[in-house]
Design a protein around this nucleic acid. Structure first.
Lengths: 263, 263
DNA sequence: TTACAATGCGTAAATTCTACGCAATAAACT
DNA sequence: AGTTTATTGCGTAGAATTTACGCATTGTAA
């Protein structure tokens, strides 16, 4: 939503196009230079940051909605996107008093005040998704109601996000760390070809622990999850590292066999 | 809902008490004698079986709703209940044509025909939970609209459950099998004190594979997940097996340490 | 040239996993 | 009563895997 007119239409006719009581919130993880970052946005008039989110169109599947919302924020399609939990317990998801006030502040930018019965004021459960993106490829598009956005290191996320977004992002991180043992997480956070130090540092960053460089390489190669290429990355200081790529076929086969990664 | 009057009230005034567009479906797993069973119900007029389910009250949390629905079906409270996925993709969750017809057949028992705009006819996403119960403790209470219920071996579940319930139960099983390595699953399916053959058979049943009896015992004892008691179960033929109990403290400590069970 | 950091490769020790053997016990059978 | 048999508890050798390093190689910088 990039214009005042679009926002007004959304407020007044959104209930015809979207399902009420349900939203999607998306923890978008991007990796760069030993740091795992999340995309946060600040809506107009809000003091605190939010996760990017949106509503489910009445004629699109849940998965389609999640991808659309992700694409609206990052301009990227076909990304790795994983549903991890639906949130409907926290105080802010029960009584909509705070929600109403918060919403009202934002929508005052287009001169509307949401009545208590308005569809945007009602109790809303949120379906949480997390996405993995190449940090450098993302072009964030600010929307009409978004004052500010930022990529924040996951360690630096403030304690006071709006609603229950702190809970959502914590659960997303926990899920990501559990999934890293069972899915080619790096495939979506790195470029097609990557060096061993790059993927090694990625795993160390996500898991928040040190992993022996040499054993890490051995394990991924032995299981056939990555494949060493002939090319070397010439740029960079000191010795030129080889390039590697994921072997997705082997990866899925290993998953079926029940091979488990441990570090 | 046990009377015609309650059902009529639910149909006509349910939208005031429950959130539309959302339901909870529950895969209730019970274990007994080497077999993993699921509770299925058959609504009035339906040819196919369903998972037990219900709606979310406007003034209860999502978790409260799940426990209430479970208690309504099994008369048991405080059970292990785990949310695992929210379903909003399948054809039956997109167009509500089939849903309308199916619903209408059931509600014809109380003489109502649901109009297209009726809250029960609208598109509904379903939040999936799975529960683990002691099969023998459950007292299933048939409701007014339920013609029949049964405990069906998970291997014998028919291919034609209503809506996307086959998909839901498959995902529940997959999740259960993944969680068995990280949570004291047996704690909720067995009694407080159990014998080694009992828990061994439970794990074999859930994982659908044979596990060496002796290594299985060694692993659980070494990790401190179960504790051997002095008592022996005198009943039963042949040698009297010792009784064991879960060591929940050690269990949660092992989880934090990241110890992983493998069989 | 030399020092140094980054990268790739190997190996020995420690640990864990796996596949069994076997004794002890209690019921069933001759 | 003695024998057979199924069930349970416990141990152990060998295989496999994990872990902790050593070290040579390469490119950059002093």
């Amino acid at each position: 939503m990039n214009t005042r007119q679009e926002v007004l239409d959304f407020v007044h006719h959104g209930a015809e196009r979207f399902l009420p009581h349900l939203s999607i919130d998306c923890a978008i993880f991007g990796y760069h230079d030993h740091e795992l970052k999340t995309l946060l946005i600040r809506h107009h008039g809000q003091e605190n940051w939010s996760l990017p989110g949106g509503y489910i169109g009445r004629h699109e599947t849940l998965t389609e909605a999640a991808h659309r919302i992700l694409a609206e924020k990052t301009q990227l399609t076909g990304l790795f996107l994983q549903q991890f939990y639906t949130f409907g317990d926290s105080a802010t998801r029960m009584n909509n008093i705070k929600t109403e006030q918060t919403h009202n502040t934002t929508y005052s930018k287009v001169g509307v005040s949401l009545s208590p019965g308005h569809w945007l004021s009602e109790r809303t459960l949120s379906i949480g998704y997390y996405a993995l993106v190449d940090y450098l490829q993302v072009v964030v598009t600010p929307e009409f109601l978004v004052d500010e956005y930022c990529w924040l290191n996951v360690a630096d996320i403030p304690q006071e996000l709006v609603y229950d977004h702190n809970e959502i992002i914590q659960k997303a991180l926990l899920t990501l760390r559990a999934h890293i043992f069972q899915q080619p997480i790096g495939y979506n956070l790195l470029r097609d070809k990557f060096t061993l130090p790059e993927i090694h540092s990625l795993y160390e960053t996500i898991l928040c622990k040190q992993i022996d460089r040499r054993n890490f390489r051995k394990k991924l190669l032995t299981l056939g999850l990555i494949r060493q290429l002939d090319e070397q990355k010439k740029i960079g200081p000191h010795r030129s590292p080889f390039l590697y790529e994921f072997d997705l076929e082997n990866y899925s086969r290993a998953l079926e066999d029940g091979s488990i990664l441990t570090f």
